[in-house]
Design a protein around this nucleic acid. Structure first.
Length: 326
DNA sequence: CGAATTTGACCGGCGC
DNA sequence: GCGCCGGTCAAATTCG
């Protein structure tokens, strides 16, 4: 690969990753008004099992990541997932397959959830201004001092903390910053060379949580938003997310509880993330239940899909890819 | 008025 | 060493 190629390659910073070119990443757009999903056809809404009892699932982002990753290996895709392991081949392949603006895949093994408390509440804002601390000083001299301090800090930082694992997701959306249940503080925006669309930088606002994400629009497919997560949350979802999860309909929860594990994961994702999850998830679910296309169509009518559902479905949805640590 | 975002400046890495 | 580029900082500005 030539240097020039590498320069143009938005992925060149990263090592190998798994790339599933058609599965849906179902994480985003938690829209309280749209989570009234009916149980999918083919499921017997049954019962008396509570959501939490039956699934043992907390509405935790990290755990959802655990769901998502195996999901890529399931039947969520229209075509077979690709596993690209040779960094050189991979980089070429990435550009050839789709020239998205930039990806920083990442990964995220299960993190240990620090607190057993369920109540993350409206996320602790206690650290809100943690990036402002140098500002405490006011004079120009101090400012100069701060500057040198900054340099020193950077020098310290230079002790190469290995880059956090990253995940990158493609999501069809007109909204750049997709809701994912966490609270983010934007700390920068940059024009990137290969794309006409700016890249935005966010940090998780939760205390001690070092998770970052970058958001940008694909220059090849402007309807696609590329979201790259870096690091692992060390806390639970803020209340907004939990509240949303809690509004799942009882019948749906029952359906989820009664389904097979794979199906359960997909149902859950569909329920929690109706916008993006719906397309591939239900498509996959339905195929598992030998439901015809006609029935699928009917099923779609029953679900409250977003207007662009058809687009999502036709294109097999946004892509999901998972990068492994080098 | 505090919180969140914007935006220009700065920094380090990298290629030449 | 220089210039380019992506990532981050932090003062200024906007928002609720």
């Amino acid at each position: 690969m030539s240097n020039n190629d590498q320069k143009q390659d938005p992925f060149h910073n990263y090592g190998s990753f798994y790339y599933n070119d058609s599965s849906v990443f179902p994480f985003f757009n938690i829209t309280p008004t749209q989570n009234h999903i009916q149980p999918a056809a083919g499921f017997d809404p049954p019962s008396n099992m509570s959501f939490t009892d039956s699934l043992h699932l907390s509405m935790d982002y990290n755990q959802l990541q655990g769901l998502i990753q195996p999901a890529a290996a399931f039947d969520m895709s229209c075509s077979s997932p690709q596993v690209i392991t040779d960094p050189n081949v991979e980089e070429d392949a990435k550009l050839k397959r789709f020239g998205v603006g930039d990806q920083n895949p990442p990964s995220n093994p299960n993190s240990s959830v620090s607190s057993s408390s369920n109540e993350a509440g409206p996320d602790d804002d206690s650290d809100k201004m943690k990036y402002k601390h140098p500002k405490e000083t006011g004079t120009h001299e101090d400012a100069a001092h701060d500057k040198s301090k900054k340099v020193n800090n950077k020098a310290k930082k230079k002790e190469k903390t290995p880059r956090e694992p990253q995940f990158a997701f493609l999501t069809k959306s007109e909204i750049d910053h997709l809701e994912d249940g966490y609270r983010w503080r934007k700390y920068g925006q940059k024009a990137v060379k290969i794309s006409p669309y700016p890249r935005s930088y966010y940090r998780c606002t939760s205390q001690k949580c070092k998770v970052k994400k970058r958001v940008e629009r694909s220059f090849q497919d402007p309807s696609t938003v590329i979201t790259t997560y870096e690091g692992q949350h060390n806390h639970h979802y803020p209340a907004t997310f939990r509240g949303n999860a809690a509004r799942l309909s009882p019948s749906l929860l029952a359906s989820i509880a009664s389904s097979t594990p794979n199906l359960r994961q997909q149902l859950l994702l569909t329920s929690l993330f109706p916008h993006q999850a719906a397309a591939a998830t239900t498509s996959s679910m339905l195929s598992q239940n030998n439901i015809t296309h006609h029935q699928q169509h009917q099923q779609q009518q029953e679900l409250h899909f977003p207007p662009d559902y058809g687009l999502l479905k036709d294109s097999c949805g946004p892509s999901f890819f998972h990068k492994q640590e080098p």
